[in-house]
Write a protein that binds this DNA or RNA. Structure first.
Lengths: 338, 338
DNA sequence: TCGTCCTTTGTGAACGCTAACAAGAGGTTC
DNA sequence: GAACCTCTTGTTAGCGTTCACAAAGGACGA
């Protein structure tokens, strides 16, 4: 029904309300001093004409676009999506919208997107990394604030928001100790992986605090269920006394649960289990449902969004790494000993 | 290093290259007739100054922003993400970027985002629905082309891109028939669900073509593994002769696999299994790995993006529903009978 | 030597807003 | 009644591009 004319603009509203364009602008943006009656008249005229002010024209004038770029490198999005949601929550307060760019971990694509975002004059950029080593800072001359989420920037002066992975491990192990377990093992992902290291450190620290030793060495492997099944079988053979296993991911945890059942051990009666990710399909599909450390990525995103907004306002990022705590979600796999 | 000055604009480049702004515009956009030497001089000047042209100024003039809105309603993103990726692929050809808006299935949020996108003068909107009934068309006066992806619009004159769910079922059942199975049952999601209906129809049609009857009625339930486990146990009790089960989702399929194992049936030796979604963590974590119908949502997204681009160019969407086929990904759970 | 045409470059008016400033109306104060 | 407020509203110059058109300069034929 829009009519054939190009689009209703502020001058149309002005004409209809019998005022000048400046007055319309003031009335609609609630700025300046205006008689209430005039303001209403303008509002009514705008309403009747279906006037939708152009943010692009406003941006051209103000220099702010109220848009940000959200670069994600995690193709299947298990990690990026909650970050996106959190960021959206924070940005919503400022009526800011996000351009989402999936780089597919390709530096060429990344450069391309950064250029594209710069041309669009985004007010800032959030880089949502994968769980991995610190990532190189954004390539190219970026003149707007950048906040790194989940994977910190290799440059310490950049602003990064990360998960307290070590603290998450501490949470998990303390929980297992509280349920009365003492012979705790750790099955986790690839050796050398940054978050694997952090979790091992947290595990050892929490155990040491309680005067307990880890059963055997950490079992390094992959992130898959297959690895979990395999590790579980080997683990109970090598350390039959084990009564709890902290697993580096829910997938591993689920594999371990299946492997233990195959080996004739009951979860949680004989062996308690805790995973990491709190990824519902896996944690809740597990038999029994899997207690898990939630990385609270949505909060990571929310924090990143809030920091970015702040940085945009002051023109510069608050440098440094901000750490967000994990939460433990308790399910059947770690029920206390009867 | 950008310097304290506001930003380098086209006039700075013009001054440096010793030409007028019009000439710079022509040189950088490759329009009009220019001496090659001039063009190069401008390019060099722009390069040296680190000039990044403002897309917002260009948009103001041209009326096109080369941005689209991508509204997703599927909070956990299992379906939206592949659609987003596909759309990105298509839009990339036009240097178009997408604003991603998660409505969380809340009409208030949806209206809010639509207004926000309108103010930003996006060139078009993609609405990525969840697998469910047709959804009501976008509320509010939308003056740009809209393409609905995955969940079609309830308004048939709108442009929708959907998956051929019935065809996917046909694919699955034909595959099971080809592996020598004849006593095929169907365990699926909630009764009344549109895609559940479509799959039942496809299943019955493919069986009928082969002169075979479905074993029992379809088993309607939920989408979860728990339901799959339960249904498997009941199914083999009621129909011990069953030699294949087509499952309405990978989660159901995985539950069925576990349930069958618990009931002492072997997969695929005794009973073959096919799921839907080809959701890697579930399908590959399954024991044995699960043959699955891939909805090819990335292709849905790509098609939607391409249709939107086309619509933007011609100013109007091509009305009607476009259907994209599914693919079958064969894994261990449907190995032919020895 | 002039007119014509072609090629290359410059000029200035949009695009749709915002905000600084100007201006007009009416009221107080001395 | 002049000077000075205050309260409203109008005017207009940007914001950073693009593009239609004008203009300038050469080449060329008559």
């Amino acid at each position: 029904m829009a009519g054939k004319r190009s689009r209703v603009g502020i001058v149309d509203v002005a004409r209809r309300a019998g005022v000048s364009v400046g007055t319309v602008s003031k009335a609609l943006n609630g700025r300046g001093q205006l008689r209430a009656e005039t303001r209403d008249r303008v509002r009514v005229a705008a309403q009747e004409l279906g006037f939708v002010p152009s943010a692009v024209a406003a941006s051209l004038h103000s220099g702010r676009t109220y848009t940000v770029g959200l670069i994600m490198t995690d193709h299947h999005g298990r990690f990026s999506l909650p970050i996106l949601h959190g960021a959206e929550d924070a940005l919503g307060w400022d009526e800011t919208l996000a351009f989402v760019c999936d780089t597919r971990d390709d530096p060429i694509r990344e450069r391309h997107y950064v250029r594209s975002l710069a041309r669009r004059r985004v007010d800032g950029i959030i880089v949502a990394g994968r769980r991995t080593e610190p990532r190189p800072p954004l390539a190219g001359e970026v003149t707007v604030p950048v906040v790194y989420a989940f994977a910190r920037s290799a440059e310490p002066a950049d602003c990064s928001v990360v998960v307290d992975e070590e603290g998450g491990a501490v949470l998990a192990v303390r929980h297992l100790l509280r349920t009365g377990r003492r012979r705790i093992a750790h099955v986790t992902g690839p050796h050398g992986h940054a978050s694997v290291r952090a979790r091992v450190d947290g595990t050892v620290r929490a155990l040491r605090e309680a005067g307990v030793e880890l059963v055997g060495e950490p079992w390094y492997g992959g992130w898959s269920e297959v690895w979990g099944r395999f590790a579980a079988a080997a683990l109970v053979r090598e350390h039959p006394e084990v009564d709890a296993i902290f697993c580096g991911s829910d997938a591993i945890g689920r594999g371990v649960a299946d492997g233990l059942r195959d080996s004739g051990r009951r979860v949680p009666e004989d062996i308690a289990l805790v995973g990491v990710d709190n990824w519902l399909p896996t944690a809740e599909g597990c038999r029994p449902s899997l207690t898990s450390v939630d990385l609270d990525l949505q909060r990571v995103g929310r924090t990143a969004g809030a920091l970015l907004l702040e940085a945009i306002q002051r023109g510069r990022t608050e440098p440094g790494t901000h750490t967000v705590p994990c939460r433990l979600v308790v399910r059947a796999s770690s029920a206390p000993r009867q």
